[in-house]
């Protein structure tokens, strides 16, 4: 093999670089995200539930919010959920009324998943 040493050295360097993120985090227990629901408004609710089921929201809140963005276009400002209840379509006036703790609720998972959202460029969240 020509230049065998160089090739092997190169391969080792490559392998180190590629596995660096894994090795770096090895053994460190990365805390699972734990979105908090302990806002005053939620505490006071008799039946603690979102506009749809927890499972639905966890899986689909991004699509739902994306659809809600169209409210300003078609003028339909009321969302009817799967059990027929109506909610006003508004991130600030519906979602954030309960989830006022955006740092502990939204950011918790988004940070963990490295999801960068730009909602807060415009939508005001109360400092929590």
């Amino acid at each position: 093999m020509y230049d065998g040493n160089k090739i092997i050295t190169g391969l080792i360097i490559f392998a180190c670089l590629v596995t660096f993120p894994f090795l770096y985090n090895f053994g460190k227990a990365n805390a699972k995200p734990d979105p908090k629901l302990d806002t005053p408004v939620i505490q006071q609710m008799k039946e603690k539930r979102c506009i749809e089921t927890k499972e639905f929201m966890r899986a689909n809140h991004m699509q739902l919010l994306d659809e809600w963005r169209e409210a300003v276009r078609d003028g339909k400002r009321v969302y009817v959920n799967s059990s027929g209840e109506s909610y006003k379509i508004s991130l600030q006036n519906t979602c954030l009324k309960c989830h006022s703790n955006t740092k502990e609720f939204c950011d918790e998972c988004h940070d963990y998943m490295s999801v960068k959202i730009y909602c807060w460029d415009c939508h005001i969240r109360v400092k929590s």
């Binding site: 991130l91 600030q92 460029d121 005001i124």
Partner: peptide, 19 residues
């Protein structure tokens, strides 16, 4: 530019705009 620092009293019922 980013308008956020120049809004004196924010109305939390209505959004702002982005740059």
């Amino acid at each position: 530019r980013d308008p956020q620092p120049f809004i004196k009293e924010k109305n939390i019922e209505y959004p702002m705009r982005t740059k």
